[in-house]
Design a protein around this nucleic acid. Structure first.
Lengths: 230, 230
DNA sequence: ATAATAGTGTCTGTCAGACAATATCTA
DNA sequence: TAGATATTGTCTGACAGACACTATTAT
């Protein structure tokens, strides 16, 4: 790395969040309507500027807290990618580090102070709109693809469920996120036998109707061997 | 995203490269010895400042060209992650976007203008040293892990081979990167049957000794279904 | 009883790893 | 010839998808 150039053009660093959940049988993303220029009135990913003494993960957690007021320990946060195309922000050179947040069905978020409005969108509708602010459509596409891929080889689907869940609820996460139907019986067998994916509890529930289903908690595994295939 | 804060503390954005190859039966990384403060004389990943009109991928390609003088079309470049811990650069707040570059066995790189020296290190030795500049040990660990993981579910191992390669050469890439032994016969069957992984040519070679081996080119697939497992 | 969902058992084809056998080069 | 590596074939056990069947609740 060479010496610091004599004069930097000023660069701003932001953190943007792709907050994903499964609600009402849909794969959904949290968008805010912008209350300020640029892109006033357009829908955008929540985000904000990196503060001077803050690391990226801290900033992402803080933004998540500010936008969703959700307990941070219930949400899986991971860095997605960084976007820096010249001109992506008309105000100045802006580099944004995008994070994905996988959350269970949340209470409807309250609008942040700088957002005119905030609500859940189905991912398909959000991308169909075609007029997200900045390059947020691309970031959203990348985040959705990352989430879909991660369901294959990690037990992250559980991040979309409440802390105790049934195998059916877990299966519906896969079906909604991937847009495919899965055989309930084979899925049950695969998931309960995969080492460390889910942990049996002693409770059952009838909240999904029919015969009582056993409740499970997320296991301690971080990767699935072998992976579930789409 | 809120309004631009009235005063930003200045932030510098750099791009660092984890250039990986397989040479002499070892998984190796290109390091440069720093010729300037900070960390003078310490080994570091090659990299440099993002220029005002440049996107990240362009900057990564340019740095690669400057440091290795390798034809860019022979190298797989992909964004790894972004690092921004306060204090990671003692000069000023610096955000670095790391890329991994997977390259075939290269001619020994010439030192860049700002590097006192440049050479290949075995990945294990580089991490064992324990005194890489900045947070480059962490970036290297992450890059190595990304490369290892990607071999499982993409045909990227071919990026470590010359343009025409034998199945044995491809297998040795896996063995060196993963540090495991693979059955030559099962590997041959798996790879040649996987759709789009490798493309047969009409040529053979005896450069590895023994019976002439058919030469293959990289196929057009981008993911492997099902993946190869470590 | 009927409907709904949970969970188990079984069948069958495919694919993994283990490894025998054969092919074709160099020395 | 022996030695090295390539490539094909075969066996076997595990696991995938398909789906019959049983279990347990609500109405």
């Amino acid at each position: 790395m060479p010496a610091v150039p004599d004069a930097h053009p000023p660069v701003a660093v932001t953190v943007d969040l792709v907050v994903l959940t499964v609600r009402e049988e849909r794969f959904q993303v949290l968008l805010i309507r912008r209350g300020e220029e640029p892109f006033v009135g357009r829908w955008a990913l929540p985000g904000g500027f990196l503060r001077p003494e803050e690391d990226l993960a801290e900033a992402a957690g803080r933004e998540l807290q500010e936008e969703t007021s959700l307990p941070a320990d219930r949400v899986h946060l991971e860095q997605l990618a960084t976007y820096a195309a010249p001109g992506r922000d008309p105000r100045m050179r802006t580099v944004t580090v995008a994070y994905i947040a996988l959350a269970p069905d949340l209470p409807i978020p309250s609008a942040g102070t700088d957002a005119a409005d905030a609500r859940w969108w189905s991912v398909d509708d959000a991308l169909g709109e075609g007029d997200l602010a900045f390059d947020h459509a691309q970031i959203l596409r990348d985040g959705v693809e990352r989430a879909r891929a991660k369901l294959e080889y990690t037990p992250l689907a559980a991040a979309f469920c409440r802390s105790e869940f049934t195998i059916s609820e877990l299966r519906r996460v896969y079906e909604v996120v991937w847009g495919t139907a899965l055989d309930p019986r084979n899925f049950h067998r695969k998931v309960t036998k995969a080492d460390g994916f889910v942990q049996e509890t002693s409770d059952t529930t009838t909240r999904d109707g029919g015969r009582p289903a056993r409740l499970y908690r997320a296991g301690q595994a971080t990767t699935l061997h072998p992976p579930l295939l789409r």
